[in-house]
Structures are given as structure tokens and as C-alpha cells.
Computed example of a mutant assay.
Amino acid sequence: MGTSERPIVIYPPDEDGGRRVRVDGTILGRAFTVRDVAAFMQEAGLQEWDEMDVARTSLIDWRGGGPDHWAH
């Protein structure tokens, strides 16, 4: 994995405010809040992760706005 590649991608909000969550190339679903992203991370094996981890980590490539951007 290159330094510019991140294993977790959060895509821009869609018309409903949902953001697709991709981990290691697999779309896990749509998140509507940082809490939803944390739940996806927990399901992917990062059981210790919470909303603060999601907001602070450099492993996530936030596209179309950071963890505070959920409107289309």
C-alpha cells in the first residue's frame, strides 16, 4: 500500500445524505453519521473503534468532505 493509499474510503454524501463506506476494496454499506462509520469499522474487525477514532484516524480517505459533512 502506497503512502497516498488508505484502506478505508468514505465517499461523498448522496442525495439522501448517505455516504458509501469501502474497506479494503469492499463496499460495506452506507453511513449517515460518524457513529455508523464506527459500527462498520467494528464489524470489519476494529472492535475498539468509536466515533473519536473515526474522526481522528489517518486511515480514512474522506472524499467530498470530512467526518462533519453529511449533507448532499
Score class of each variant (00 low, 15 high):
residue 1 M to A: 15
residue 1 M to D: 12
residue 1 M to C: 10
residue 5 E to T: 12
residue 7 P to T: 05
residue 10 I to P: 02
residue 10 I to F: 03
residue 11 Y to L: 13
residue 11 Y to Q: 13
residue 12 P to Y: 07
residue 13 P to Y: 09
residue 14 D to I: 06
residue 14 D to C: 07
residue 14 D to W: 05
residue 14 D to A: 08
residue 17 G to L: 05
residue 18 G to Q: 06
residue 18 G to R: 05
residue 19 R to I: 08
residue 20 R to S: 14
residue 22 R to K: 14
residue 24 D to R: 13
residue 24 D to C: 07
residue 24 D to I: 01
residue 25 G to W: 03
residue 26 T to D: 10
residue 26 T to L: 11
residue 30 R to V: 10
residue 32 F to G: 15
residue 32 F to R: 13
residue 37 V to W: 02
residue 38 A to E: 02
residue 39 A to N: 09
residue 40 F to T: 01
residue 40 F to V: 03
residue 42 Q to W: 00
residue 43 E to G: 09
residue 45 G to Y: 01
residue 46 L to S: 11
residue 49 W to P: 01
residue 50 D to Q: 05
residue 50 D to S: 08
residue 51 E to A: 15
residue 51 E to Q: 14
residue 52 M to Q: 15
residue 53 D to R: 07
residue 53 D to S: 11
residue 54 V to A: 12
residue 55 A to P: 00
residue 55 A to K: 08
residue 57 T to P: 06
residue 58 S to V: 07
residue 61 D to P: 02
residue 62 W to R: 05
residue 63 R to H: 09
residue 63 R to V: 14
residue 64 G to I: 10
residue 64 G to P: 07
residue 66 G to D: 14
residue 68 D to Q: 12
residue 68 D to R: 10
residue 69 H to R: 12
residue 71 A to I: 11
residue 71 A to Q: 13
residue 71 A to W: 05
residue 72 H to G: 14
